[in-house]
Write a protein that binds this DNA or RNA. Structure first.
Lengths: 162, 162
DNA sequence: TAAGATTGAGCCTTCAATCTTC
DNA sequence: GAAGATTGAAGGCTCAATCTTA
């Protein structure tokens, strides 16, 4: 394995799909999901459900439209995730009025978040393990820059507040 | 917007999910898919279908099990993608025997690939636009390193050959 | 009318089970 | 039995349409 960013796979053979950023991002996303699932299996939670719980921990009482923007996921997916979390007893929906939700973590969700505080950094470490300290910082900085500056190109842009 | 990798979003407020690599990768993947779809809409093709076509262009005549490894996607997804591509008339399956497929690009697929040769680099450019030349190189190098070194952690690892 | 929320269809990915053919 | 391929269910994401309530 050389250290030029190409593995033995692409040393001898030119195989284009591997070189497209979109393709590599898809594969890294697959890897991240696999790692999250293997570490969180016993707690029966997915990466998106965890993101939603973190958002509600940060902003208790918000409605789904606000949650959509915090976790940067579309309305449909958010609707689905909230339903699942309510079914699991992790989220409580005290309706603000007949049309607007008001979402809170349940007691068991707060306990779960305590556990995940330990596990989440482990997951991050496994993902970034192939990189050394300075490479990790560089990657995270560039990744965040791409996400934030391309935010509006996403179908579900991130936003704070209203 | 500062240039330290954090946007205005995270300057004032500490919002943890944004800092997890897995979360940012999920969002970048969303963005990549959105960009691909907007550029390829008129050709009725998805990013994964395009990857499969590229693999078959590179290795005509392979079966699905080989295609699985080239595009680093699981058997189920590959089965689905191949069925769709055959239905669209982009892929021809000359069965090797009663159980093993042998996949080839159709004539219209080869024409489509000519067009995509122009479009694919444009898609890459839009994705990486927020970064300057040296940042792009650094990001791609680190991204490739993460994907290749974490390859075996994926449920659908990449592999060449048998 | 606009905002909040939901549903349906198709695509991609994970889990698992199954079925056929080598 | 092992290998190639398919199917089903559930999660996540795209498109779009719909429905109710503020």
């Amino acid at each position: 394995m050389t250290d030029d960013g190409h593995s033995e796979y692409s040393q001898d053979v030119k195989f284009e799909p591997l070189e497209h950023p979109g393709h590599l991002v898809r594969r890294l996303h697959q890897i991240c999901v696999s790692i999250f699932l293997s570490k969180s299996k016993e707690f029966d939670i997915t990466h998106l459900q965890y993101a939603a719980l973190q958002a509600l921990e940060y902003s208790p009482g918000i409605d789904q439209a606000r949650l959509v923007k915090l976790i940067a996921t579309d309305r449909q997916t958010t609707s689905y995730v909230v339903r699942k979390l309510v079914e699991k007893g992790l989220v409580v929906n005290k309706m603000k009025n007949k049309k607007t939700s008001s979402l809170y973590l349940s007691g068991s969700a707060r306990a779960l978040m305590k556990i995940m505080e330990e596990i989440a950094p482990e997951i991050d470490d496994v993902i970034l393990k192939p990189l050394n300290k300075s490479e990790r910082a560089a990657f995270m900085q560039l990744l965040a820059k791409l996400v934030h500056k391309n935010n509006e190109l996403s179908r579900a842009p991130f936003a704070l507040g209203q």
